[in-house]
């Protein structure tokens, strides 16, 4: 992948955008700029608009006001931006679907005008190359149902990377995976960032994902904070974003966000409950 030159348009340029579905806005007056070579985490409570922002960038949410440009293109449902790879949440996929790893990657080939169902030797070689690149070459012929969580993420990344796509959007790539897989996924994403791609992911994990990223964008209907985790993950910003008080502990460059909720009291025994109800 060539180094991005200064004249390249930003990977993402959102200016004063309000967006949602069916005329109802989920995001309000949102502005955001992401350059090539950045790895950005979107955090926020459920319903804050993280997935809607990813959909807006791929033309699948309605833009009600403002402007959106992705790699210099204005995305729409009819014309999703080229050069964008998308990795869905793992639980959105039917893992019993009868496809092999290589066949799933080849779906990212994108030559929809092709008048033949089978893939050419050149297309298969490209899929194999990207699988090798992600350490999945030996699993190309394996059924997708037999993959681990980390292997599934790598497979979808491989599909997103075919044709050397410059912007990668990942919806909860570390959701429901173990510690080793999370490290593996973040390591691969950092390598892709270092190659000059822009990588944007959503996450609910403030401590094990967001705090480790170079840039975090907090969302709650709009951008509530944007910057390095040490600058952004502060009690004030977190309360504004999540609507709940949180403590932030610092250990050198690392920060740990702790919920201020007190431990829930043990359940009263039934005799106590009877007394309470009798009152």
């Amino acid at each position: 992948m060539s180094d991005p030159s200064r004249s390249d348009p930003p990977a993402v340029l959102v200016t004063g955008a309000s967006a949602g579905y069916g005329g109802r806005a989920v995001l309000h007056d949102l502005s955001l700029r992401i350059e090539a070579g950045e790895l950005v985490g979107l955090v926020g409570p459920s319903g804050a608009g993280k997935t809607t922002l990813l959909r807006l960038l791929t033309g699948r949410a309605d833009l009600l006001a403002g402007q959106v440009e992705v790699l210099g293109h204005r995305p729409s449902r009819r014309r999703p931006p080229p050069q964008v790879g998308y990795v869905p949440q793992l639980d959105q996929v039917d893992w019993d679907f009868p496809l092999t790893v290589e066949q799933v990657v080849l779906l990212g080939e994108g030559s929809w005008g092709a008048r033949r169902p089978w893939f050419s030797r050149r297309e298969r070689a490209a899929a194999r190359a990207v699988l090798e690149r992600l350490g999945m070459g030996a699993l190309a012929a394996r059924s997708i149902r037999a993959l681990s969580g980390g292997q599934r993420q790598r497979m979808f990344l491989a599909r997103a990377l075919l044709h050397d796509r410059r912007l990668l959007l990942l919806d909860e790539p570390t959701s429901g995976v173990d510690v080793a897989t999370r490290r593996e996924v973040l390591g691969v994403l950092d390598e892709l960032r270092a190659e000059g791609r822009a990588v944007v992911l959503t996450t609910h994990d403030l401590n094990q994902v967001a705090a480790l990223l170079p840039r975090v964008v907090c969302l709650s209907d709009t951008v509530t904070a944007d910057g390095r985790p040490t600058d952004v993950l502060t009690p004030a910003v977190l309360e504004r974003t999540y609507g709940a008080p949180m403590r932030v502990l610092r250990d050198g460059n690392r920060i740990v966000v702790v919920d201020q909720l007190s431990p829930i009291a043990p359940a009263p025994d039934l005799a106590d409950l009877d007394r309470v109800l009798a009152r």
Binding site: P82, Y86, P88, L99, W112, A114
Partner: peptide, 25 residues
């Protein structure tokens, strides 16, 4: 139809959301 549209039909059946991002109508 199957010969001409096999790839997008399979992609839409497997993963319609990502298929749309990759330009499948």
């Amino acid at each position: 139809v199957l010969l001409a549209r096999y790839r997008p039909l399979v992609f839409t059946t497997f993963d319609p959301e990502v298929a749309a991002v990759h330009g499948v109508r």
